[in-house]
């Protein structure tokens, strides 16, 4: 679990960066990793990203889409919806759908654990929750260090990834929030497609 020991040259923890103080305002988002080395002297250009873990894989997500990060709330099953939708939950009176990325990626079903979090994204059409197994890091990522995935080469399930970060020892999938939320826009808003997708599942 010593993530800091990866010694990523271009990834740095943002906790030490005063410029990113806003991220740390929410205590829930503030996950102090005592093992993080002080690498604040390294390049701070690029976009702020948040790193999270799903199953055994690591992902990055542009910070600008993140509204907040909370403990996994109680989730209500939402029938007749996309398979990837775990259900809905309520936060401060707002009902937000929450997505289980494991389903999209074909990973084994996960389990509620102490480190499980929900990242609430802010999209054009409202809030959207993401279940993640752990929050790993806050980093600056240069756009140039993201390798675009060839959409034709990878399967459809990877469409919500905009690319793979080449930085560090481990490859991280970079999430494309717009593509992810677009996944749920019904091609045609009739129930047949919904039922069909339900039956397929």
């Amino acid at each position: 679990m010593n993530r800091g020991a990866r010694g990523l040259s271009e990834i740095q923890p943002l906790q030490k960066n005063p410029a990113t103080g806003s991220i740390l305002e929410n205590p829930l988002t503030h996950r102090e990793d005592p093992n993080s080395p002080d690498v604040s002297h390294i390049n701070q250009t690029g976009l702020r990203h948040i790193g999270f873990r799903l199953n055994t894989d690591d992902f990055l997500l542009d910070m600008k889409f993140v509204r907040e990060i909370i403990m996994l709330p109680k989730i209500t099953f939402l029938p007749r919806s996309d398979r990837a939708v775990e259900g809905v939950f309520a936060i401060r009176g707002e009902i937000i759908p929450i997505v289980n990325l494991r389903r999209i990626l074909g990973m084994p079903e996960g389990k509620r654990e102490a480190s499980t979090r929900a990242i609430i994204l802010q999209t054009e059409r409202g809030g959207l929750g993401l279940i993640v197994d752990d929050i790993t890091e806050f980093v600056w990522v240069n756009e140039s260090s993201i390798q675009i995935l060839d959409q034709n080469f990878f399967g459809e399930r990877y469409h919500f990834l905009s690319g793979v970060s080449k930085i560090g020892a481990k490859m991280c999938g970079v999430l494309d929030v717009e593509k992810l939320s677009a996944r749920f826009i019904p091609a045609q808003n009739n129930q047949d497609s919904i039922i069909a997708s339900e039956e397929m599942s």
């Binding site: 919806s81 409202g126 809030g127 939320s181």
Partner: peptide, 16 residues
């Protein structure tokens, strides 16, 4: 309450 605009409204469910 509305279930949000991200998902299509599931048939048979008015809201939450």
């Amino acid at each position: 309450k509305s279930l949000g605009k991200i998902l299509p409204k599931p048939q048979g469910i008015a809201g939450g």
